Computed example of a mutant assay.
Amino acid sequence: MSTYNVSISTTAQKKPKPSQDQVPFGTVFTDHMFMMDYEPEQGWHDPRIVPYAPITLDPAAMIFHYGQTVFEGLKAYRADDGRILLFRPEKNFQRLNQSSDRLSIPPVDEERVLDHLMKLLDIEKDWVPSTEGTSLYIRPFIISTEPNLAVGPSRTYTFMIILSPVGSYFAGGIHPVTIHVEEQFTRATKGGTGMAKTAGNYSSGYQAQANAKKEGNADVLWLDGVEKKYIEEVGSMNIFFKINGEIITPALTGSILKGITRMSIIELLKSWDMPVTERKISIEEVYRAFADGTIEEVFGTGTAAIISPVGELNWQGRKITINNREIGEISQRLYDTITGIQRGKLEDPFGWVVELNENIQSGSNLYSS
């Protein structure tokens, strides 16, 4: 990988690191962050690593008024031998550019920003925890910064990467969850922004998620926005169904996020010679499979949980119980395999794992436990 110039300003005041078994998601941040800016005359410029701190924006910055922003989420893992590993990070920056294109944001140089991320991780490598199930969450994002209330794309932007140590998503192992099938609210439609990782896609789902949780559900399963018939995805996860031996996941039709874990699961299943199909699947088909006893497993996939087994779907007052609310064989095997590859415990025959360069991995892990 090429090396690109980036200015570095380090802090003299290092933060205390929390205990690895007490790290709530997204509330603790490392000592430094990455930033660079965009202007039409210069393109993306001034890449820099600086102490983590609040940023200043004009009250008229367009991000506040029109929501022109995109983001990504990936993780760095510490292997048992101390190596720091990333899982398919190039796919995250490819998807960032796909989201940017949909939101009229200038693309970044994917190789260059990955190089910048590696430099930031080099500086912050002591923040990568080592306890089983923990990781360093990586959040790249772009915001529109031009102070202008006219409706239209911003002329200026800031790209940032912040880092946050996170604990195990499932304390004590993975657990099947209960999901509400949402029919009142719509997450996205074809031609909209459903395929982009942008802020509004998430905040527009809060009300439905809150309603579902009041009824004891962990999240919502979104249906298509036109017919309210075909399954799309669950909250921040893609969804898979194992019916009569076939593993089915909704096809990417423009309203569903192209999950990197989803992509990896499909590739892994195919390598195991298991029948996996990307196609339309209706909630009625899932209910019929439940009624005739052919539904075997349901699971969500995403960066946070990797695999989240679904034990029950609530639809129109009917409960669709899956595998006696127990973890399915395929769900467990997928979880064990993906996490094993991510943490360097299993062989990586796909070339998915990227290791932080060995020449910058000197020194011990100073993370307090």
Rank of each mutant, 00 (worst) to 15 (best):
E246T: 14
W272D: 01
T301N: 03
I266T: 10
T301C: 11
V276Q: 02
R262H: 08
N238W: 00
I260M: 05
K228S: 12
K280M: 12
L223C: 11
T249R: 05
A289F: 11
P275Y: 02
E296Y: 09
I239A: 04
K242L: 15
M263Q: 14
T249N: 07
T249M: 06
F290P: 03
P250F: 05
K280N: 14
W222A: 03
I256M: 01
R262Y: 06
I306K: 08
A291Q: 15
E246K: 15
K242A: 15
G245R: 10
F299R: 02
I265P: 00
A304K: 13
P250G: 07
M263K: 12
G293T: 11
P250V: 04
G302Q: 08
W272Y: 11
Y287P: 05
M237D: 00
M237P: 03
L269H: 05
V220L: 04
I283D: 03
E246L: 10
N238K: 01
G300R: 04
E246M: 12
S255F: 08
D292G: 13
S271L: 06
A305C: 15
E233A: 00
S308Q: 13
W222Q: 02
S308V: 12
I266P: 04
W222C: 04
S308K: 10
A305S: 15
T277N: 13
I239M: 06
A289C: 12
E296A: 12
M237W: 01
E227S: 15
A291D: 14
F241C: 07
A291K: 15
T303P: 08
S255G: 08
G235H: 01
V234G: 00
F240E: 05
R279S: 11
Y287H: 15
V286Y: 05
I307A: 10
S264N: 06
I281L: 12
I248H: 08
G300A: 14
E233N: 01
D224K: 00
E267L: 09
K228I: 02
E297N: 10
T301Q: 03
E232F: 03
P309C: 06
E285D: 13
E267P: 07
G300P: 04
M263Y: 11
A291C: 15
S236V: 13
